[in-house]
Protein backbone atom coordinates (compact mmCIF):
# COMPACT_ATOMS: atom_id res chain seq x y z
CA UNK A 1 0.00 0.00 0.00
CA UNK A 2 1.43 3.41 -0.90
CA UNK A 3 1.47 5.93 1.93
CA UNK A 4 -1.35 8.39 1.32
CA UNK A 5 -0.34 10.95 3.95
CA UNK A 6 2.90 12.08 2.27
CA UNK A 7 2.11 15.41 0.55
CA UNK A 8 3.63 16.18 -2.85
CA UNK A 9 6.30 18.91 -2.53
CA UNK A 10 5.72 22.14 -4.45
CA UNK A 11 9.36 22.00 -5.54
CA UNK A 12 11.59 18.97 -5.41
CA UNK A 13 15.08 18.50 -6.77
CA UNK A 14 16.65 15.10 -7.31
CA UNK A 15 20.41 14.85 -7.58
CA UNK A 16 20.58 18.18 -9.34
CA UNK A 17 23.92 19.24 -10.86
CA UNK A 18 24.89 22.20 -12.98
CA UNK A 19 28.21 23.36 -14.45
CA UNK A 20 28.54 26.73 -16.17
CA UNK A 21 29.79 26.36 -19.75
CA UNK A 22 33.44 27.33 -20.11
CA UNK A 23 36.05 27.54 -22.88
CA UNK A 24 38.15 24.92 -21.18
CA UNK A 25 35.92 22.02 -20.05
CA UNK A 26 38.81 20.17 -18.36
CA UNK A 27 38.86 22.38 -15.25
CA UNK A 28 35.10 22.72 -14.95
CA UNK A 29 33.84 22.79 -11.38
CA UNK A 30 30.12 22.21 -10.93
CA UNK A 31 28.34 25.21 -9.39
CA UNK A 32 25.64 22.90 -8.03
CA UNK A 33 26.47 19.29 -7.13
CA UNK A 34 23.94 16.50 -6.50
CA UNK A 35 21.47 18.64 -4.62
CA UNK A 36 18.27 16.98 -3.47
CA UNK A 37 15.70 18.98 -1.55
CA UNK A 38 11.97 19.28 -1.02
CA UNK A 39 10.11 22.52 -0.48
CA UNK A 40 6.44 22.14 0.51
CA UNK A 41 3.67 24.58 -0.28
CA UNK A 42 3.40 27.27 2.42
CA UNK A 43 6.91 26.72 3.81
CA UNK A 44 9.35 29.53 4.57
CA UNK A 45 12.82 28.29 3.70
CA UNK A 46 16.16 30.07 4.17
CA UNK A 47 19.15 29.21 1.98
CA UNK A 48 22.58 30.09 3.38
CA UNK A 49 26.06 29.78 1.95
CA UNK A 50 29.16 31.86 1.33
CA UNK A 51 29.67 33.84 -1.88
CA UNK A 52 30.11 31.40 -4.74
CA UNK A 53 28.62 28.44 -2.83
CA UNK A 54 25.96 27.89 -5.51
CA UNK A 55 22.89 29.45 -3.88
CA UNK A 56 21.93 31.72 -6.75
CA UNK A 57 22.64 29.01 -9.33
CA UNK A 58 20.33 26.69 -7.43
CA UNK A 59 17.63 29.40 -7.38
CA UNK A 60 17.93 29.82 -11.15
CA UNK A 61 17.61 26.05 -11.58
CA UNK A 62 14.49 25.99 -9.43
CA UNK A 63 12.61 28.36 -11.68
CA UNK A 64 14.07 26.98 -14.92
CA UNK A 65 16.19 29.99 -15.88
CA UNK A 66 18.99 27.41 -16.06
CA UNK A 67 18.57 23.81 -17.23
CA UNK A 68 20.49 21.18 -15.23
CA UNK A 69 22.99 18.86 -16.93
CA UNK A 70 21.95 16.03 -14.63
CA UNK A 71 19.25 15.40 -12.10
CA UNK A 72 15.83 16.98 -12.30
CA UNK A 73 13.49 19.58 -10.85
CA UNK A 74 9.91 18.54 -10.11
CA UNK A 75 7.08 21.01 -9.63
CA UNK A 76 3.99 19.46 -8.01
CA UNK A 77 5.64 16.12 -8.61
CA UNK A 78 5.95 16.73 -12.37
CA UNK A 79 9.42 16.62 -13.87
CA UNK A 80 10.45 19.73 -15.80
CA UNK A 81 12.92 17.76 -17.88
CA UNK A 82 11.01 17.08 -21.06
CA UNK A 83 8.70 20.06 -21.11
CA UNK A 84 8.14 22.22 -24.19
CA UNK A 85 8.38 26.01 -24.15
CA UNK A 86 4.67 26.51 -23.44
CA UNK A 87 4.60 24.16 -20.48
CA UNK A 88 7.80 25.69 -19.09
CA UNK A 89 6.23 29.13 -19.35
CA UNK A 90 3.26 27.91 -17.30
CA UNK A 91 5.49 26.25 -14.73
CA UNK A 92 7.68 29.31 -14.36
CA UNK A 93 4.66 31.38 -13.32
CA UNK A 94 4.59 29.39 -10.09
CA UNK A 95 7.99 30.57 -8.93
CA UNK A 96 9.16 34.18 -9.19
CA UNK A 97 12.31 35.92 -7.98
CA UNK A 98 13.22 39.20 -6.27
CA UNK A 99 16.85 40.20 -6.81
CA UNK A 100 19.41 42.20 -4.84
CA UNK A 101 19.43 45.53 -6.60
CA UNK A 102 15.96 47.12 -6.70
CA UNK A 103 16.99 49.55 -9.45
CA UNK A 104 17.66 46.66 -11.82
CA UNK A 105 14.16 45.22 -11.64
CA UNK A 106 11.84 48.21 -11.89
CA UNK A 107 10.84 49.00 -15.46
CA UNK A 108 8.13 51.70 -15.54
CA UNK A 109 8.06 55.37 -14.55
CA UNK A 110 4.95 55.05 -12.36
CA UNK A 111 4.62 52.52 -9.54
CA UNK A 112 1.28 51.02 -10.59
CA UNK A 113 2.43 50.63 -14.20
CA UNK A 114 5.50 48.81 -12.97
CA UNK A 115 3.31 46.37 -11.06
CA UNK A 116 1.03 45.91 -14.08
CA UNK A 117 3.98 44.97 -16.31
CA UNK A 118 4.03 41.29 -15.27
CA UNK A 119 0.29 40.53 -15.61
CA UNK A 120 0.17 42.50 -18.89
CA UNK A 121 2.82 40.18 -20.30
CA UNK A 122 0.82 37.20 -19.12
CA UNK A 123 -2.17 38.45 -21.16
CA UNK A 124 -4.37 39.12 -18.15
CA UNK A 125 -7.51 41.19 -19.05
CA UNK A 126 -7.35 44.91 -18.09
CA UNK A 127 -10.05 44.87 -15.34
CA UNK A 128 -8.36 41.89 -13.77
CA UNK A 129 -4.97 43.68 -13.95
CA UNK A 130 -6.48 46.70 -12.16
CA UNK A 131 -7.78 44.46 -9.41
CA UNK A 132 -4.47 42.61 -9.05
CA UNK A 133 -2.39 45.80 -8.97
CA UNK A 134 -4.54 47.27 -6.20
CA UNK A 135 -4.45 44.07 -4.23
CA UNK A 136 -0.67 43.72 -4.63
CA UNK A 137 -0.15 47.33 -3.48
CA UNK A 138 -2.26 46.63 -0.40
CA UNK A 139 -0.38 43.43 0.30
CA UNK A 140 2.96 45.28 0.52
CA UNK A 141 1.46 48.34 2.24
CA UNK A 142 2.24 50.74 -0.66
CA UNK A 143 -1.25 51.74 -1.88
CA UNK A 144 -0.62 55.45 -1.30
CA UNK A 145 2.40 55.33 -3.63
CA UNK A 146 0.46 53.97 -6.65
CA UNK A 147 1.00 57.12 -8.72
CA UNK A 148 4.54 57.84 -7.50
CA UNK A 149 7.64 57.48 -9.62
CA UNK A 150 9.78 54.52 -8.40
CA UNK A 151 12.95 56.62 -8.29
CA UNK A 152 11.40 58.79 -5.57
CA UNK A 153 11.17 55.78 -3.23
CA UNK A 154 13.63 54.45 -0.64
CA UNK A 155 15.42 51.14 -1.23
CA UNK A 156 13.05 49.23 1.04
CA UNK A 157 10.03 50.75 -0.70
CA UNK A 158 11.47 49.87 -4.13
CA UNK A 159 11.95 46.27 -3.07
CA UNK A 160 8.35 46.17 -1.83
CA UNK A 161 7.24 47.43 -5.27
CA UNK A 162 9.31 44.66 -6.85
CA UNK A 163 7.53 42.19 -4.57
CA UNK A 164 4.14 43.70 -5.51
CA UNK A 165 4.99 43.33 -9.21
CA UNK A 166 5.61 39.66 -8.59
CA UNK A 167 2.47 39.20 -6.47
CA UNK A 168 0.41 40.57 -9.35
CA UNK A 169 1.48 37.51 -11.34
CA UNK A 170 0.10 35.38 -8.50
CA UNK A 171 3.00 32.97 -8.04
CA UNK A 172 2.85 30.25 -5.40
CA UNK A 173 6.49 30.69 -4.44
CA UNK A 174 8.74 33.77 -4.24
CA UNK A 175 12.52 33.43 -4.13
CA UNK A 176 14.27 36.42 -2.49
CA UNK A 177 17.87 36.37 -3.77
CA UNK A 178 19.70 38.53 -1.21
CA UNK A 179 16.88 41.02 -1.62
CA UNK A 180 17.79 42.88 1.59
CA UNK A 181 21.57 43.12 1.02
CA UNK A 182 21.56 46.73 -0.18
CA UNK A 183 18.99 48.09 2.26
CA UNK A 184 19.32 50.05 5.48
CA UNK A 185 18.07 48.38 8.69
CA UNK A 186 14.50 49.68 8.44
CA UNK A 187 14.33 48.75 4.74
CA UNK A 188 15.53 45.22 5.55
CA UNK A 189 12.82 44.88 8.19
CA UNK A 190 10.14 46.19 5.77
CA UNK A 191 11.02 43.54 3.20
CA UNK A 192 11.37 40.69 5.72
CA UNK A 193 8.10 41.63 7.40
CA UNK A 194 6.36 41.69 4.00
CA UNK A 195 7.77 38.27 3.10
CA UNK A 196 6.77 36.73 6.43
CA UNK A 197 3.27 38.19 6.23
CA UNK A 198 2.69 36.89 2.68
CA UNK A 199 3.81 33.50 3.91
CA UNK A 200 1.63 33.57 7.03
CA UNK A 201 -1.53 35.14 5.63
CA UNK A 202 -1.57 33.94 2.03
CA UNK A 203 0.36 30.73 2.31
CA UNK A 204 2.88 31.86 -0.32
CA UNK A 205 6.01 29.73 -0.21
CA UNK A 206 9.12 31.80 0.55
CA UNK A 207 12.71 30.87 -0.27
CA UNK A 208 15.03 33.50 1.22
CA UNK A 209 18.66 33.45 0.07
CA UNK A 210 20.60 35.51 2.59
CA UNK A 211 23.83 36.18 4.46
CA UNK A 212 22.00 37.47 7.50
CA UNK A 213 21.59 34.84 10.18
CA UNK A 214 18.91 36.94 11.91
CA UNK A 215 16.75 36.45 8.80
CA UNK A 216 17.41 32.73 8.60
CA UNK A 217 16.16 32.31 12.17
CA UNK A 218 12.69 33.37 11.01
CA UNK A 219 12.40 30.48 8.51
CA UNK A 220 10.77 27.09 9.08
CA UNK A 221 13.71 25.28 7.50
CA UNK A 222 17.30 26.31 6.80
CA UNK A 223 19.52 24.87 4.09
CA UNK A 224 23.27 25.50 3.96
CA UNK A 225 25.30 25.14 0.76
CA UNK A 226 29.06 24.83 0.38
CA UNK A 227 30.91 24.45 -2.90
CA UNK A 228 27.74 23.45 -4.71
CA UNK A 229 26.61 20.78 -2.24
CA UNK A 230 23.95 20.91 0.42
CA UNK A 231 25.85 20.31 3.67
CA UNK A 232 23.25 21.06 6.36
CA UNK A 233 19.49 21.23 6.52
CA UNK A 234 16.91 21.33 9.27
CA UNK A 235 15.05 23.70 11.54
CA UNK A 236 16.98 26.86 12.52
CA UNK A 237 17.67 25.22 15.91
CA UNK A 238 19.12 22.12 14.26
CA UNK A 239 21.26 24.00 11.76
CA UNK A 240 22.62 26.60 14.19
CA UNK A 241 23.70 23.89 16.62
CA UNK A 242 26.45 23.09 14.05
CA UNK A 243 28.36 26.27 14.80
CA UNK A 244 31.81 24.83 13.99
CA UNK A 245 30.63 23.55 10.62
CA UNK A 246 29.15 26.96 9.84
CA UNK A 247 32.45 28.66 10.67
CA UNK A 248 34.32 26.19 8.47
CA UNK A 249 32.21 27.33 5.51
CA UNK A 250 32.71 31.07 6.17
CA UNK A 251 29.37 31.56 7.89
CA UNK A 252 28.37 32.19 11.47
CA UNK A 253 25.48 31.63 13.85
CA UNK A 254 23.11 34.37 15.09
CA UNK A 255 24.72 36.72 17.64
CA UNK A 256 22.98 35.08 20.64
CA UNK A 257 24.45 31.69 19.79
CA UNK A 258 27.86 33.17 18.91
CA UNK A 259 28.01 34.91 22.30
CA UNK A 260 27.07 31.84 24.34
CA UNK A 261 29.36 29.65 22.22
CA UNK A 262 32.27 32.01 23.00
CA UNK A 263 31.37 31.90 26.70
CA UNK A 264 31.28 28.10 26.59
CA UNK A 265 34.77 28.07 25.11
CA UNK A 266 35.89 30.17 28.06
CA UNK A 267 34.41 27.66 30.50
CA UNK A 268 30.66 28.28 30.42
CA UNK A 269 28.07 25.54 29.99
CA UNK A 270 25.16 27.24 28.26
CA UNK A 271 22.75 25.15 26.17
CA UNK A 272 23.10 25.79 22.42
CA UNK A 273 21.78 27.03 20.13
CA UNK A 274 19.87 30.02 21.49
CA UNK A 275 18.15 32.06 18.79
CA UNK A 276 16.25 34.54 20.90
CA UNK A 277 17.79 37.58 22.64
CA UNK A 278 15.42 37.38 25.64
CA UNK A 279 16.27 33.75 26.32
CA UNK A 280 19.98 34.50 25.88
CA UNK A 281 19.76 37.37 28.40
CA UNK A 282 17.71 35.20 30.80
CA UNK A 283 20.35 32.46 30.79
CA UNK A 284 23.23 34.88 31.42
CA UNK A 285 21.29 36.78 34.11
CA UNK A 286 20.50 33.53 35.91
CA UNK A 287 24.14 32.53 35.84
CA UNK A 288 25.10 36.01 37.09
CA UNK A 289 22.76 35.71 40.11
CA UNK A 290 24.19 32.28 40.94
CA UNK A 291 27.74 33.65 40.77
CA UNK A 292 26.83 36.56 43.05
CA UNK A 293 25.15 34.32 45.61
CA UNK A 294 28.14 31.98 45.77
CA UNK A 295 30.83 34.58 45.87
Amino acid sequence: MPKLTEPVPLIETRDLSYTYPDDDPSDDVPAVKNVSLKVYEGEHVALLGHNGSGKSTLAKLLNQILVPQSGEVLIDGKSCRDLGEDDLFDLRKNIEMVFQNPDNQLVATVVEEDIAFGPENLGVPPEEIRRRVDEALDAVGMREYAKTSPHMLSGGQKQRIAVAGILAMMPRCIIFDEATAMLDPSGREEVMETACRLNRERGITIINITHRMSEAVRADRVYVMHEGSMILSGTPREVFSHIETLRDVALEAPAETELLYSLNRLGGDFPLPVLDADLCADLIAQRYRETKNHG
Partner: peptide, 10 residues
Protein backbone atom coordinates in the same frame (compact mmCIF):
# COMPACT_ATOMS: atom_id res chain seq x y z
CA UNK B 1 29.30 50.04 1.21
CA UNK B 2 32.54 48.15 0.47
CA UNK B 3 31.27 44.88 1.98
CA UNK B 4 27.60 44.87 0.89
CA UNK B 5 26.43 41.49 -0.37
CA UNK B 6 29.45 39.57 0.94
CA UNK B 7 29.34 36.62 3.34
CA UNK B 8 30.63 37.11 6.91
CA UNK B 9 34.15 35.90 6.08
CA UNK B 10 34.33 38.01 2.91
Amino acid sequence: EPAAGLDPKG
